[in-house]
Design a protein around this nucleic acid. Structure first.
Length: 210
DNA sequence: CTCCAGGTTATAC
DNA sequence: GTATAACATGGA
């Protein structure tokens, strides 16, 4: 982890608004980050309330509220490039709108119990639930494992393992990184992405680390 | 054309 | 119980 932290000193975790965080990550599955941003931008531009951003007071749009999304159609969401995630986001918005899940109430629950409630939502599995716990609720014991983190852990800690189940990686993170494993996850994520970006990009053969 | 992207779900061994 | 396929969309 020391090698990973050297890549991004001063990194901090966000404390995002839970609904926006949850909805954004439902849109994220098997999408590239640039495309996730585009989906979120389209949702805000088409269905979000206008807001003025200081100091230049640029007019822009907020992320659409729970009831606003719950009132949309699947077709409207697909038009924002959500693809097969459209029914997931719609289903989750409607469950929250009707009170089946109270996002605010999750703050009072232990991490494991809150995770269980989140995973009951359509389109929300272990990874997305952990992202919401970490990025919105500040649960630093949450350790989201995506393809990149799995890659980093495999490379740094299990160089000759062939399988590496999610279950095993979660047990490892809890034991090895402890109650702030979420911060370790962020460093690992940035580390492995920085290392693999050069080499993927054209002309990347010339090293150029920073 | 094939492979992959901040995964989840349904279905098959 | 774990393994595989399907799910949209776009870029390399």
């Amino acid at each position: 982890l020391r090698a990973a932290t050297d890549f991004c000193r001063g990194l901090r975790l966000l404390r995002q608004e839970p609904w926006e965080c949850l909805a954004s990550f439902i849109c994220s599955s098997t999408k590239q980050i640039v495309q996730i941003r585009e989906i979120v931008r389209l949702l805000a531009a088409r269905f979000g309330d206008p807001v003025a951003v200081p100091p230049d007071v640029t007019q822009t749009s907020a992320f659409p509220s729970v009831p606003r999304v719950a009132a949309l159609t699947e077709a409207e969401l697909r038009a924002c490039k959500l693809g097969f995630r459209a029914p997931y986001l719609l289903g989750t918005a409607r469950r929250i709108a009707e009170g089946t899940l109270d996002l605010a109430a999750l703050r009072t629950l232990p991490t494991a119990a809150a995770r269980e409630r989140l995973e009951a939502l359509p389109g929300v599995g272990r990874k997305i639930a952990d992202c919401v716990l970490l990025f919105a609720y500040g649960r630093q014991d949450a350790f989201p494992v995506d393809v990149w983190v799995r890659r980093a852990l495999g490379q740094l800690y299990f160089p000759r393992a062939r399988k590496l189940t999610l279950e095993r990686l979660h047990r490892f993170s809890a034991r090895h990184f402890g109650p702030h494993a979420g911060y370790a996850q962020q460093y690992l994520f940035h580390y492995i992405r920085r290392n693999s970006k050069r080499g993927v990009t054209e002309r990347g053969a010339g090293k150029e680390v920073r």
